[in-house]
Design a binder for these strands. Structure first.
Lengths: 342, 342
DNA sequence: CTGTTAGCGCCTTCAC
DNA sequence: GTGAAGGCGCTAACAG
């Protein structure tokens, strides 16, 4: 370390006081006399002293660091959530450590070890599940779960504070939008099979069909994995296997963009021949051609809410509300319209 | 902290050895006798002990944390760089702390304080400049610059290890591509005015024109700020102010996407009426309509290289090469083609 | 209001 | 091959 070890002691010596007084000047300036305070502040300024965070953490047993477990930073969906988290975090003197898990269990555990190793005070979970090891224990210890807040996905059977949107309801809204436009043959491209989001959104789609008296057709539901190419493949598969639907509701925006690409490649127009609706409202959704009709998730707000819960959890040891459900809305843009008349 | 304070002492007691032996078993198992080692390992397993990182850091004066200063996580351009950084970091036992600066000097300084406050060992700079305070000092201290590696942008007048691409050369390549297709009237949409990338890319554009004997026209250069809307505005401005160019080279992909949107809105076809070339090859570049011809930056590789330099800097105190220039390539896709014949 | 002191948990000489 | 002990820099009692 080139960084020349200016410690609290150097400041104390220069100011002609004890180290305790320096520490107090930093943390509770009000209980220090005006005169000494001035002197200490000058000494701090002169030396360029900064508190050694490691030492402080060791003493106080808290780091003011929160780990955010995210499956993939590269996914633009998460970026804005992180911004929201960060805003609230820094307002409360917390720092966030972004843990990119790539959906790899080792990586999740390695970040969980952060909390156990006292390198972080708590964890925000954007990855859809709690990083437990084989024994159902969090990295070794049984009962003692560290402060955690679950974001975006329900994790059944665990009573941790949760911030999420109503996926089923939003999918229902999106599908009903298409039905109200007059569509009767509506396809759906799903997310990854085990994913809880996939299930909830599929459920909303089915409920909307049911309520409108439209029979559910398995043929019109294609698998996907939330990627652009899987959206393309999904549409191709549906087009190849039977009569063309007049609309497609995709479980996220990337797949919707893929769907549009595939439709265009087949010479079909959007929304003229086929309407497309996505989910998430990612950054590019408004700039593609045509602009995507989609479910807007207030991502920043989601992040802010979750971090606020975490701060409360850390400060008071518990949170009042176990589950916060954030409102979503349907953003009607160019990719959806009435089906072509006969 | 619910997290029940299992310390090295608990392990030592259970194993019937001193804490020194436990510490040795952890760090240099070879110098501990087979028998005690086994016993200690069992005790560690049984207690679920994890080293307290704060205490270790305090003792060793290193955190194994590297701060990465990035202007905006939301920008998909940075995501993959981060992945590369992370890969090399975790391979060497380092963790990365992503510092989202939003281009705000306070935020940059606050992260710089991390290094000064011994919460991190070094800094990777993706933000284009060194976080110095008024006096030209890094957060207070004069000479002692902490380990830093500059990424993506040249920072003139500072001899820090740097990883970057040849922006001027790549812009030259992109422009020459258009010239070779037969274009003679090529517009350019710039990035933010002070930005060094903006300058380098503009320089490459001008050099290509010059080499082809095409006079530079100020009218054909529009300001921008790397955002989608600024690309739209740029095109509109150029279209409004004079005869239509047959091609546009944009200083990044977002602006190119905006440019395409604006061209379509005016009823112009891409590349039929106007060719568009971007820069960066962000994720969506291949999926827009038409797919964007652009300069591919090997972002993952850039990240890996920078982190490797940092590891070396930390371990040996210096790096052999002061500047590493990463190769780029032109990705020819659908948005560029020959100008429409007369 | 200020100084003295006891650790926080760990690593690392230094003895044995 | 192992144990005892000092101290990393700081905060929080406890005295004064």
């Amino acid at each position: 370390m080139a960084n020349g070890a200016i410690t609290i002691e150097d400041v104390a010596r220069l100011a002609g006081v004890s180290i305790a007084t320096v520490s107090r000047t930093l943390h509770r300036p009000d209980i220090v006399s005006e005169k000494t305070r001035k002197r200490v502040e000058q000494a701090i300024e002169a030396t360029g002293y900064t508190t050694n965070a490691m030492a402080r953490s060791l003493r106080t047993m808290q780091t003011h660091v929160i780990v955010v477990l995210v499956p993939n930073i590269g996914n633009p969906f998460f970026s804005e959530i992180l911004l929201g988290i960060e805003a609230v975090a820094s307002a409360h003197g917390f720092n966030i450590l972004i843990g990119n898990t790539d959906n790899k269990p080792e990586r999740e555990k390695s970040f969980a070890a952060y909390v156990r190793g006292h390198q972080a005070d708590g964890m925000l979970l954007l990855n859809g599940h709690v990083p437990l090891d084989n024994g159902g224990r969090l990295q070794g210890r049984p009962a003692a779960l560290p402060p955690m807040v679950i974001m975006c996905e329900r994790i059944p059977g665990l009573s941790l504070p949760t911030v999420r949107i109503d996926n089923e309801g939003a999918a229902h809204l999106a599908t009903r939008h298409l039905i109200e436009l007059g569509h009767r043959s509506i396809a759906h491209i799903k997310g990854p099979e085990e994913n809880i989001l996939t299930k909830d959104r599929l459920a909303g789609y089915r409920r909307a069909l049911e309520e409108a008296g439209i029979p559910f057709e398995a043929r019109l539901v294609a698998p996907g994995d939330f990627s652009i190419p899987s959206g393309q493949r999904g549409v191709e598969r549906i087009l190849d296997e039977g009569p063309r639907p007049t609309a497609v509701f995709c479980s996220n925006d990337e797949m919707a963009m893929g769907a549009i690409v595939a439709l265009k490649q087949r010479g079909l127009s959007v929304p003229g021949d086929v309407s497309v609706v996505g989910f998430d409202d990612i950054q590019f959704a408004g700039s593609c051609d045509p602009p995507l009709t989609t479910i807007h998730q207030p991502r920043r707000h989601i992040g802010e809410t979750a971090m606020a819960l975490m701060v409360e959890l850390l400060e008071s040891g518990s949170v009042p509300e176990r589950e916060v459900v954030i409102e979503t809305e349907l953003l009607q843009r160019g990719s959806s319209g009435p089906p072509r008349g006969p």
